[in-house]
Simulated assay, not measured.
Amino acid sequence: MKIVRTTYLSLGSNKGNKQENLQQAIYLISQKIGTIAAISSIYQTASWGFDSEDFYNICIKVNTTLNPEELLEKTQMVEKYLGRVHTISDTYEDRTIDIDVLFFDDEVIFSKDLIVPHPKMLERKFVLVPLAEIEPNFLHPIKKQKINQCVAACTDSSEIVKLEDLELEKPVSLADKYNYIAIEGNIGAGKTTLSKMISDDFNARLVLERFADNPFLPKFYEDKDRYAFQTEMTFLTDRYQQLSDDLAQFDMFKNFIVSDYYIFKSLIFSQITLQQEEYRLYRKVFDIMYKEITKPDLYVYLYQNTDRLLENIKKRGRDYEQNIASGYLEKIHKGYANFMQAGNDLNTIIIDVSELDFVSNPDDYSLIIKKLTSL
């Protein structure tokens, strides 16, 4: 797991629908930067440094795994996405959204592009007042005063009004909503890639299937009838052992866990590959093991059409997968469909990713995350 750092950001808007601009910025920050831990009230102030529309200002507390340079890059990306145009002029101007990094833990940073703590924050009541609302006792690492003390010492005489009737919604993080997510899909559907992305973005414990450790798998693709039972039994016992060991290490109420498989896939594949007598024996062993396995809070099935699956399989280039037939993939599709329709007591969502590229397109990835958090 990555190290989680705490950053405090100041957000302001005086152009267009100011409340909506702030809300959209909060959503984007939660998706691209980290978990929103706190949001201040909205405060209205006159434009600072130039004559224009009044600003709506807030401060937020964000837990992030980004380093300071990545944080700055992402905040600027959010500004650009919401229509902010950065110019080389030193004069102040209207903006749909303005995001400033106030603190990054208690670090003091002096670089070409980023100075932290923000060098002008102690002069600005529109920064200090909302910050004091959410973190009054945070100690300024240079001034060595708490934020509420900084407010009292601020010489900014401009009027600041708390807008009691306006509220902003705090996004629900996957880590807040779930303890354990299992992501499944057909061969080449992208389940491992998505699991890794979620693990990176939400600092989750990652449990990946050890498919490469199955010595029978290459032989199975060469001679399915001969090696099906050995292959499926090896997968079953290894999945049971891995999930039992890995999940036992984590506190299910304190850790967020994401895995790229769930043990029920063993039963789905075995129904396709095993002879009837073999399957009956296999099912007895499976039922004993299944009772002991921790069930996920959310079961995600990634659906990809067969043509896309074949493209992905060819692209990733595993030699033993190159001769997989479309008919075999169709059987797996049907097996998963039967499993999900049968009523398995799991909180299940099916996401069709056939037309999505969640690796290269951030909007597609955000769409998936939004689907998972909106359940």
Rank of each mutant, 00 (worst) to 15 (best):
I313Y: 12
E209M: 12
A152W: 11
L356E: 11
T231V: 10
R226N: 13
T87M: 00
L194R: 08
V353M: 07
N203T: 13
Y303P: 07
R316A: 11
I3F: 02
I60S: 03
S244A: 14
S173E: 10
N214F: 10
E355C: 03
A182I: 01
K265I: 07
I349Q: 07
D363M: 05
R280Q: 13
T294M: 14
E278M: 03
Q230A: 13
E159N: 14
D238K: 04
D156S: 02
E321Y: 04
Y221M: 14
Q149P: 09
F358Q: 01
F103H: 08
G185E: 02
K177G: 01
S326L: 00
E321G: 03
P117I: 10
S52R: 13
G16H: 00
S10K: 11
L9W: 07
N203P: 02
P171N: 03
T6S: 09
I29L: 12
D201V: 09
P130H: 05
G185P: 01
A175K: 05
D352F: 06
R84L: 04
D100T: 02
I33W: 05
I198A: 11
T348N: 06
Q23W: 08
T6D: 13
A182C: 15
E232T: 12
I369L: 00
F55D: 10
V4M: 08
K146S: 07
M197F: 06
Y81S: 04
E133F: 01
E135P: 00
V4Q: 15
K254L: 15
Y328K: 10
M1P: 03
A46W: 09
E167W: 02
I332F: 08
K61Q: 00
K2G: 05
Q76K: 05
E159S: 14
Y221N: 10
D201P: 09
F339W: 14
